[in-house]
């Protein structure tokens, strides 16, 4: 079976990554400290807004509601640093040095193997911190329905697919520009806005973050599903955006491969 093989390869990759990661046990402490400090800063930013008596709560979001957004932000940050960064940052390097050829020769889909080969388990702390913030926010919030949670989970999976596809598209540009380790920094620059509910921005920016760059769909929309303030339109749009960006990234990758002529030619 074809899928069985992909699953088996994934397990091998995971085992290799785990044993490589365990060599650096002490670094885990350092990385966890960074995750915690990261969360502290995100919470400080939020607390500063809610400590102003004259500030109307962040575009209509209460403190625990806004915490949900921070939680999803940290979780996504974790997904990026555990899964995306260690894999996709290597793509540019392997195109430049020519090792991409070996990957392409293997009898397995190249996109699959460049996307799953490495995991940076050191940064699992980010994921953990995200989960803790989400759980705390859910407890403070109360009155959360199971249907809301299920919808949020579904929309968040869509968000992760969107994030992956956008990163992957940026990475694929390496076939032409060679040195693109920093292109993904552009993503981080815009993604920083996802710390806050999109309605806390001035109107023109809000529109840009929803329709031009789908930042709103990464953290705000899943949080809205939990608080029950999500419109049907956004709920339907999220999976469409995810599917569309995945399809585009796939087509772009195949197009890049067709034009790829190896490092020295």
């Amino acid at each position: 079976m074809r899928w069985r093989r992909y699953w088996r390869v994934l397990k091998v990759f995971l085992a290799a990554t785990l044993s490589a990661g365990l060599e650096y046990r002490l670094n885990f402490v350092g990385a966890l400290l960074v995750s915690l400090a990261d969360a502290a800063v995100a919470l400080l930013g939020l607390a500063l807004f809610y400590s102003r008596p004259e500030a109307v709560s962040m575009g209509g979001w209460s403190y625990p509601q806004a915490l949900l957004v921070v939680g999803f932000f940290m979780l996504t940050q974790g997904f990026i640093s555990v899964v995306l960064q260690p894999n996709l940052n290597k793509v540019a390097e392997s195109i430049r040095t020519g090792t991409m050829d070996f990957t392409l020769l293997k009898p397995i889909d190249a996109q699959w193997s460049v996307s799953t080969r490495n995991l940076n388990l050191l940064r699992l702390g980010d994921v953990l911190v995200g989960v803790v913030i989400l759980v705390y926010a859910l407890v403070r919030l109360g009155g959360v329905t199971a249907a809301g949670l299920a919808l949020a989970a579904l929309l968040y999976v869509c968000a992760l697919i969107t994030v992956y596809s956008l990163w992957f598209m940026l990475t694929t540009t390496a076939f032409w520009f060679v040195k693109t380790d920093n292109v993904t920094e552009l993503f981080n620059g815009v993604f920083g806005a996802a710390r806050f509910p999109v309605s806390s921005f001035p109107a023109p920016v809000r529109i840009a973050l929803t329709f031009v760059l789908p930042v709103a769909f990464i953290t705000t929309v899943p949080a809205q599903a939990i608080t029950g303030t999500l419109g049907a339109g956004a709920a339907l749009l999220a999976p469409i955006i995810a599917a569309l960006s995945f399809a585009v990234s796939r087509v772009f990758w195949l197009y890049a491969l067709r034009n790829y002529t190896s490092a020295s030619s």
Partner: peptide, 23 residues
């Protein structure tokens, strides 16, 4: 690209402007 990535202060600016407009 590095310059564009250091946007946190700009994000904070936009949020505070948004808050001031609503206050």
């Amino acid at each position: 690209i590095w310059m564009l990535s250091g946007t946190l202060s700009l994000v904070m600016m936009l949020v505070w402007i948004g808050q001031a407009q609503q206050a």
